[in-house]
């Protein structure tokens, strides 16, 4: 499974230099300012950053459901050879969202419709997108429904939900948080997507459940041959799950690299402080001085420079270029501005 992302095959998802702004009452907020990342086939890519750094906006931009007032100013989102930014709403609804790109929402307690049985909801997704939606027998084809049900039960077994057959006839409130997250993972995989986007899927769960879900995700990625974009604020989760990591700060990509390499030798001062904040790594509790700047009036140049211990005069002036630094490792920081030729 160790596909090398540097080989000739283009990545499954490639976000390049994405800039998104949101018009609000207080002015124009530059929420994403030059975000780039690649997800290669079969890989799990983590996106890490503090709350408010634009992780969720990135996910929404990829799925094409940016909030009202948001505008993609420049950049591109290529998925499986298509530019998602050029697709219309109908194509996104029909072919991308929930179909080619599965989605695991953040809070399993709230992400299911409370008034319908679980089976109804999961089968509904498959009825819109699932295989055989082209066999033209209308939405209530009994044979197809039975086939969907069988496939769903198979997936529910794969996500290790107890009693999958009976589970379909229960309501969401009859499941625990971990079980609900399993149901949502099943929903994300139901239509055989190529990419799964997980938006902090373990944040609302307790630590032991969290670990089980992470193990499960890792196994499913291999089993179903999907790629995964995993958004989180927890560096510990990244270390356990991801192949590559993209670090974001205030709407900018600051560092990118293989998980082991990046965690062992972080380059960007922000990554260094973020890692230092993790309770497992820190001696006592430490934080990063200051807070994530407002997207309405971001600092000029490198957005991290007001909080950075190694800031230089040049940091406030120009936005640092993303430069390679070490083996499959890139960083956007003045400290590494001149790649040694």
């Amino acid at each position: 499974m160790a596909a090398d992302p540097t080989n000739a095959r283009p990545p499954l998802l490639s976000v390049a230099n994405l800039r998104v702004s949101i018009a609000s009452d207080e002015g124009l907020a530059q929420v994403l300012d030059g975000v780039s990342l690649d997800v290669a086939e079969g890989r799990i890519v983590g996106v890490v950053g503090e709350s408010g750094c634009g992780k969720s906006t990135l996910v929404r931009a990829v799925l094409g459901i940016l909030p009202r007032g948001a505008r993609t100013e420049s950049g591109s989102i290529h998925f499986a050879g298509e530019d998602l930014l050029t697709l219309d709403e109908r194509a996104m609804t029909r072919r991308i969202r929930g179909r080619a790109i599965g989605f695991i929402p953040q809070d399993p307690y709230l992400a299911l419709n409370p008034v319908f049985r679980v089976g109804t909801q999961l089968l509904e997704i498959m009825r819109w997108h699932g295989d055989g939606s082209e066999d033209g027998a209308g939405p209530f084809n009994r044979a197809r429904r039975a086939r969907h049900r069988l496939w769903l039960i198979q997936i529910l077994k794969a996500v290790q939900l107890p009693d999958p057959e009976q589970a379909l006839d229960r309501y969401p409130h009859q499941f625990s948080g971990g079980q609900r997250q399993r149901l949502l993972i099943a929903g994300a995989l139901a239509c055989r997507p190529r990419l799964v986007i997980a938006d902090e899927p373990t944040t609302a769960l307790d630590v032991t459940t969290q670990l089980e879900i992470l193990k499960l995700l890792k196994r499913l990625v291999a089993e179903f041959g999907v790629s995964m974009l995993f958004v989180t604020h927890d560096v510990g989760v990244v270390a356990q799950l991801c192949d590559e990591v993209a670090v974001m700060y205030a709407g900018q990509s600051v560092e990118w690299g293989g998980t082991g390499e990046l965690l062992a030798r972080p380059r960007h001062p922000y990554t260094v402080s973020l890692l230092a904040c993790h309770p497992d790594r820190a001696d006592g509790l430490v934080g990063i001085a200051g807070q994530v700047p407002s997207a309405l009036a971001p600092p000029t140049g490198c957005r991290f420079h007001p909080r950075c211990g190694k800031a230089m005069a040049a940091c406030a002036g120009t936005k640092p270029e993303t430069t390679p630094s070490g083996d499959r490792h890139t960083v956007a920081c003045m400290l590494y501005g001149v790649p040694d030729a």
Partner: peptide
Amino acid sequence: ASLFVDALQCIGASAPR
């Protein structure tokens, strides 16, 4: 504003649906 509606959007449910 509830999360399940948001999640529905993310998995490709149309607005009328």
